[in-house]
Amino acid sequence: MSAVKSHPYHIVNPSPWPFLSSVFAFAMAIAAIMYMHGSTYVPMVGFLIALIACSILWWRDVIIEARNGHDHTDEVRHGLRMGMLLFIVSEVMFFFAFFWAYFNAAIPAISFVASPTWPPEGIVALPTWDLPFLNTLILLTSGVTVTYAHHAIRLGDNKRAATGILLTVILGLLFTACQALEYSHATFGFKDGIYSSTFYLATGFHGFHVIVGTIFLTVCYFRTLKDHWTPESHVGFEAAAWYWHFVDVVWLFLFTAIYWWGGPI
């Protein structure tokens, strides 16, 4: 854009993606409401795909800028990392709301209307030391593999990093599969009162985050294959790894609070 620039920051060119994404988010909101009120879900999915396409193009631009050798200076990367961290903080607060709902329903000392027993009468909670525990192990292991990849990148060994990421992705998929299996075996349905509500929304949103994290890591896998990282500069991967750790930690809380403390009596 401009001729002189002595600061290290990235002055971004105008971009259509934010505007288009917002337009599709708006359209998707309307389509979602129509769907919820009995209309077909097709437009909603259509706009969702458009939204995803915009995001892909947007991030594509970011990756191009990251690769061009002058936009992503040390300062810019520092900012990107900080941004990711703050985003994760906001996600933590999102889960905070669901944990609040959960404890509000589960602990009579917090709320007068909490169920006197937890899980409430009529609910057979999922066995703690079965799939949920397996899933805990899977996620913990994936935390190890992603850290292994991180170390490999720091050492400049993108081959081993790729292996680490691939393992993480596979563990992530495994987790999702187990979770799906678990849902299909649950004796309580989505609409079976407050236990189901808190259970499915808390674990469901977590599952959604696992899927997002898995996609994020998959992108990183291909970027690793293309040698996008250097030991000094690999913000994209760091963001994915942090996100993954965050998903991991949320699971530990879910496991402790819902599956274990709130497990079958």
């Binding site: 919820m36 709301a97 609409k191 509500s197 808190t198």
Partner: peptide, 30 residues
């Protein structure tokens, strides 16, 4: 603060449209 509102709004949305019971006393909600 806002993510907490987002969570609450999501609960209200699923209560209204998908049969959850966060705020519905008849099904143990509050």
């Amino acid at each position: 603060a806002l993510p907490v509102l987002a969570g609450a709004l999501t609960m209200l949305l699923t209560d209204r449209n998908f049969g959850t019971a966060f705020f519905d006393p008849a099904a143990g909600g509050d």
